[in-house]
């Protein structure tokens, strides 16, 4: 299997470990990713605050290039990219004026977009294309005794909820259970991590991240599993700052793909685990968990 792939800026910067681990586990599952040639920034949430039309044009270039390359699907691992590309897809389907503007702009680059590219998330591919059975077969070191709080964040399930429920998503739960981990039931699966507010308005943003860490800890989780480079950054890089404000919460955050890699027996370094600021260690005595 081979999937066209849109890495996005974060996976080349702060979220490098996400790309490293995702490529490694997909390769292990016999799936290769083909990077979209000369992709550009999706626009994320910030661009939409400045100029909606330009944000749409920015995103459309990627989809148009994907279509021209003959791709019918595009894998977007970053939550913001996933949402923004999906949002453009919805907008041009629903609002003819947006479609016209986008086409006009694309024409400047001799591009054209018919709307045929389906934007997909790795979780969607893993569950609905590769399948849990194929994943289970690859598990050589089941994550037995590891209590994981699955954290989906916002933008992969909202507002479009294309492959999972907007309030109670379960795809990552199923995946983690397949890896042998103990999935912690907790109600903050889709609560906001603070996004960029952690940097701009720390007293508001960091508090949201703190709430997630604290509740996961209260539920006895050893680790949070995330799908988004920004969530990971907030929960991992700002961890010291959060502890500084609210006291110790010894709980690391890793990408779900890193946990998959560990279960597949891949080397932690290959999965980018050495890039975590809060080091993740497998609990040696799984039975001695937090209350």
């Amino acid at each position: 299997m081979k999937y066209p792939y849109f890495p996005g800026c974060s996976l080349r910067g702060l979220g490098r470990a996400y790309e490293e681990s995702l490529l490694a586990v997909l390769h292990h599952l016999g799936v290769e990713l083909q990077e979209l040639e000369d992709w550009n920034c999706c626009g994320a949430t910030a661009y939409m605050s400045v100029d909606e039309t330009q944000a749409a044009v920015l995103a459309s270039r990627n989809l148009a290039r994907a279509e021209r390359a003959g791709f019918s699907e595009l894998l977007a691992p970053c939550s913001a990219c996933y949402l923004v590309l999906n949002k453009l897809q919805h907008s041009i389907e629903q609002f003819p004026d947006i479609q016209q503007t986008v086409q006009r702009a694309l024409a400047q680059a001799n591009l054209n977009y018919r709307g045929s590219v389906r934007v997909r998330h790795p979780l969607d591919i893993l569950l609905h294309e590769i399948g849990l059975d194929a994943i289970r077969e690859r598990v050589v070191q089941p994550l037995r005794g590891l209590k994981v709080a699955p954290y989906y964040g916002c933008q992969i399930v909202r507002p479009y909820a294309t492959f999972d429920d907007a309030h109670q998503p379960t795809t990552m739960d199923q995946l983690l259970a397949t890896l042998g981990a103990e999935v912690v039931v907790w109600p903050l699966k889709t609560k906001c991590c603070g996004g960029t507010l952690t940097g701009t308005v720390p007293e508001a943003g960091l508090r949201l991240s703190y709430i997630l860490l604290k509740e996961a800890q209260r539920r006895g989780a050893h680790v949070l599993a995330t799908v988004c480079p920004l969530c990971h950054f907030n929960l991992d890089a700002y961890h010291a700052e959060i502890e500084h404000r609210w006291g110790p919460i010894p709980i690391p955050t890793v990408y779900f793909s890193q946990l998959m890699g560990l279960a597949f027996g891949l080397a932690p370094r290959q999965l980018g685990l050495h890039r975590n600021l809060v080091p993740f260690r497998f609990p040696s005595e799984p039975t001695v968990a937090c209350p």
């Binding site: 800026c9 039309t53 270039r61 400047q108």
Partner: peptide
């Protein structure tokens, strides 16, 4: 980080 066909993107944005 920068893309290769920056002129292409700029032309598109200019059109809007």
């Amino acid at each position: 980080e920068r893309i290769q066909r920056l002129d292409e993107l700029k032309a598109m944005l200019a059109a809007t």
